[in-house]
Design a protein around this nucleic acid. Structure first.
Length: 407
RNA sequence: CGGGGAGUCGUAUAGUGGUAGUACGCAUGCUUUGGGAGCAUGUAGUCCGAGUUCGAUUCUCGGCUCCCCGACCA
């Protein structure tokens, strides 16, 4: 990609209505633009990051048997009345059609859609288990949207739903999802900072689990057992004052951002919709369900909160908008190298603009591409290579660079 | 939802009851060239509505929007 052709430009100042660090850096870099509180456009650079996170999540969901589908965002009131959540769901976006006078919901989650849908296809124990997921825009009428991408009114989420014949099967799959989630967070670069957290489980199971990324700007408070790297959410610390893993009582207070959660719904949503199956003897039973979410757009914000310095973002390589940021400075030309990199399939952003060296270098730091390659009169036919997370640069030849990137 | 703060060119800001200023950006030209370069010329703005006033961007009221704290967050 030629930087001169980018739809967006970087900004020297963050908009004054953005205070959250993730929003400031993402807005300055041209990754996102706020339309209103809690609602963001994802611009070409930001969408690249979002898509990479999606791909990682998708691969891991497919890896545990998930089949991808796409459910509607617009729901009829009736489904939400069936579960009672038309009245009880606080942050539900409800509205009435101006001409038909029908009531609708903008989906904040999809149990009300998936349960009756599954009822069309699941009849027998032979149809179980089943696992379906989607990556879909969700709407929640948050009383207070805040913290940039961390709490939006419109956001991108992966939601997986599983269907089982008994508790043992649900429990076993729940464990698999938990392991897959750990892989997702490791792959997006948050493995060391994301901990399994015990949280309230509602009325059907004792606890649910959240994945909390430990960042100072996180909204949730939890108590972490340093030894086990397992935490207890503040909401259940009274009933669970010790580490659920080792029983230790030395828990340290931390703040985190919830990037994922896994939840045993059991029959909470299958029962109201009559989602049942016949066992081998022809007896009817409610299907057991699990639901499992990952906030994709929130994850993008959390990564920025976790990986930045005073100059800008430091994207983990796995989700960076580009692999290499190629800069030509002070009249030098990197056109040949750009073509060579493209030919090798390297995802490269090429700053061929005729701006000052300082401006281009500052831009590179802000955008946070993991590897910076500079060609200038000073590099004398070689390439100055610098990792975004390192102060040291090294001079390499074109062959050395290509070899390195092939790796 | 309760409390607090704030709306001025595209962005960040200053200022004023009487012609709205600066920086960045953008445009043109020249000069520069390793950490958001210099000079010149140009471009572009007072959230919406009502009130007070000869006159409101400024004061008053209402609305809308944004930010922060709290509450809330299957």
């Amino acid at each position: 990609m030629l930087q001169s052709q980018l739809f967006t430009k970087t900004r020297r100042n963050a908009p004054k209505d953005e205070e959250a660090l993730n929003a400031q850096l993402l807005a300055r870099g041209g990754f996102v633009q706020k339309l209103m509180a809690g609602v963001y456009s994802f611009l070409p650079l930001g969408l690249r990051v979002l898509r990479k996170i999606e791909t990682i999540v998708r691969e891991e969901m497919v890896g545990i048997g998930g089949e991808e589908l796409s459910l509607p965002v617009l729901h009829p009131k009736a489904n939400w009345s069936t579960t009672g959540r038309w009245e009880t769901y606080d942050t539900l976006f409800r509205f009435t059609s101006h001409y038909s006078k029908n009531d609708y919901v903008l989906g904040p989650t999809h149990e009300e859609v998936i349960a009756p849908l599954a009822q069309q296809f699941i009849f027998s124990y032979q149809d179980l288990p089943r696992y379906v997921f989607q990556i879909q825009t969700k709407f929640r009428d948050e009383k207070r949207a805040k913290s940039g991408l961390l709490r939006g009114r419109e956001f991108l989420m992966k939601d997986l739903y599983s269907f089982h014949r008994d508790d043992a099967d649900l429990d076993a799959y729940y464990e698999k999802v938990q392991a897959a989630y750990a892989r997702v967070f490791a792959r997006v670069g948050l493995g060391d900072d994301t901990v399994l957290t015990f949280a309230s489980g509602g009325s059907f199971s004792k606890y649910s689990h959240e994945f909390q990324t430990l960042i100072p700007s996180g909204e949730d408070t939890m108590y972490l057992c340093e030894k086990c790297r397992v935490a207890v959410n503040k909401e259940i610390i009274k009933e669970q004052p010790t580490c659920p893993s080792c029983g230790g009582a030395k828990l340290e207070e931390k703040t985190g951002a919830e990037v994922g959660n896994i939840f045993k719904l059991k029959t909470k949503y299958s029962a109201p919709f009559g989602l049942q199956y016949k066992d081998e003897k022809g007896a009817m039973h409610d299907v057991l369900m699990g639901c499992y979410g990952i906030g994709i757009s929130r994850l993008m914000g959390v990564v920025v909160e976790r990986f930045h310095d005073e100059k800008g973002i430091l994207w983990p390589a796995s989700i960076a908008p580009f692999s290499v940021h190629l800069l030509e400075l002070n009249g030098a030309s990197a056109t040949g190298l750009y073509s060579a990199l493209q030919k090798r399939g390297v995802d490269v952003l090429y700053d061929e603009t005729e701006r000052s060296a300082g401006e281009k270098l500052t831009d590179a730091d802000l955008l946070g591409v993991p590897l910076r390659a500079v060609v200038s009169p000073k590099t004398k036919g070689k390439i100055e290579l610098k990792r975004r997370d390192s102060e040291k640069a090294e001079l390499v030849s074109e062959e050395e660079l290509l070899k390195l990137l092939n790796h």
